[in-house]
Amino acid sequence: MPRNSPHMQANVGAVASTVPQEQRAQRDARHDRLFSWLLKGCALLVLACLLGAAGATLWGGRHAFGTFGWHFLVSATWDPGSDTYGALVPVYGTLMTSLIALIIAVPVSFGVALYLSEVAPPWLRTPVASAIELLAGIPSIIYGMWGLFIFAPFFADHIKPWLTNYLGNKPDDGKLSWVAQHTFLGKLFGSDYPFGASILTAGIVLAVMIIPFISSVMREVFQTVPTRLKESAYALGSSTWEVSWDIVLPYTRSAVIGGIFLGLGRALGETMAVTFVLGNAMQLSPSILDPGASIASTIANQFSEAAGLQKSTLMALAFLLFVVTFFVLLIARWMLRQLAHKEGR
């Protein structure tokens, strides 16, 4: 066969084209491996930072854990003069303020998200949604100053007297209401403290802070519901509430729970806003109208002047806050997995 025949030229061209393709495939595979290693390094870096923060706080609080043992978790004593410390008051304050914030914020956030996604006219949705996103970006110290100078005095003058007189066991006229006599609300809303700083005040301020976060997440996931599902429900005669409760919420249940726990994580670790309005009293009281303390506010108030065992105790509190937040997020993941299992995913 002649060298310059068309068949020979085609074979040479095929071989020549095969070589660059193999080189390109090897190069792409090498780049894919590098990209995979880079992503794995980023993930491991986050994990290393997480473990490093937990290990640093645990190592810093080892002296407190070794001195007080498990009694540190159940003791309400906080006496720097005798170097005796307990974590019960800060842990209780952290959990109570976050729980109050969640009880207030979740229904309000659900209503806001539902209004913006299902009820509000189109010309109003964008401005209100932008305002909510702006509220999420306000620094926490601004909320704390608002709570200290505006909301706490208003709470002490108008809301707290009503709660103590009609729900608490320490009314101004000395006459206990039926609610205070026959329910646990008497102790929960009974207080002699005259000022507005309290666990309830801190919980309300935290609720105002986390409402933009939760409502933004809910609004985004509500908008992912297929329009055909909602239109089919409306065509069958369902009301807006029925469509929202039976169609929208079940479809986005997992994401809604994730958004709620995202707001809860923000509330658990909040420092400045809580420090302004909580009262920072290291005393355990059954009343949410009395001042209290949280883990974050205790660390912020005392760490600059702490030394020795007190400093180790504050580091131990930081580790406890890490543990509490970790378990909250773990519960959230467990709930999401259970929901996914029920939905057959």
Results as ranks from 00 to 15, higher is better:
residue 3 R to P: 08
residue 3 R to H: 08
residue 8 M to I: 14
residue 10 A to H: 03
residue 21 Q to H: 05
residue 21 Q to I: 12
residue 27 R to W: 11
residue 33 R to S: 13
residue 33 R to I: 15
residue 42 C to Q: 08
residue 43 A to E: 10
residue 61 G to E: 03
residue 71 H to R: 15
residue 76 A to K: 08
residue 78 W to H: 07
residue 79 D to M: 08
residue 90 P to F: 08
residue 105 A to F: 04
residue 111 G to T: 02
residue 113 A to R: 03
residue 115 Y to R: 01
residue 126 T to K: 15
residue 131 A to T: 10
residue 133 E to Y: 10
residue 135 L to Q: 00
residue 146 W to P: 00
residue 149 F to Q: 04
residue 153 P to S: 08
residue 158 H to C: 00
residue 173 D to Q: 06
residue 175 K to Q: 12
residue 176 L to K: 07
residue 186 G to Q: 03
residue 190 G to P: 02
residue 197 A to T: 07
residue 203 G to T: 06
residue 213 F to C: 06
residue 216 S to P: 11
residue 217 V to K: 06
residue 219 R to E: 14
residue 219 R to G: 13
residue 222 F to Y: 13
residue 235 A to T: 13
residue 235 A to N: 09
residue 248 V to R: 10
residue 254 S to M: 09
residue 255 A to S: 12
residue 256 V to K: 10
residue 258 G to L: 11
residue 261 F to E: 07
residue 261 F to P: 08
residue 262 L to E: 05
residue 263 G to T: 13
residue 267 A to C: 13
residue 268 L to E: 07
residue 268 L to F: 11
residue 268 L to W: 03
residue 270 E to C: 09
residue 283 Q to C: 01
residue 289 L to M: 11
residue 292 G to A: 12
residue 295 I to N: 03
residue 297 S to V: 01
residue 299 I to E: 08
residue 303 F to E: 02
residue 311 K to Y: 08
residue 318 A to W: 00
residue 320 L to E: 06
residue 337 R to Y: 06
residue 340 A to L: 12
residue 341 H to F: 07
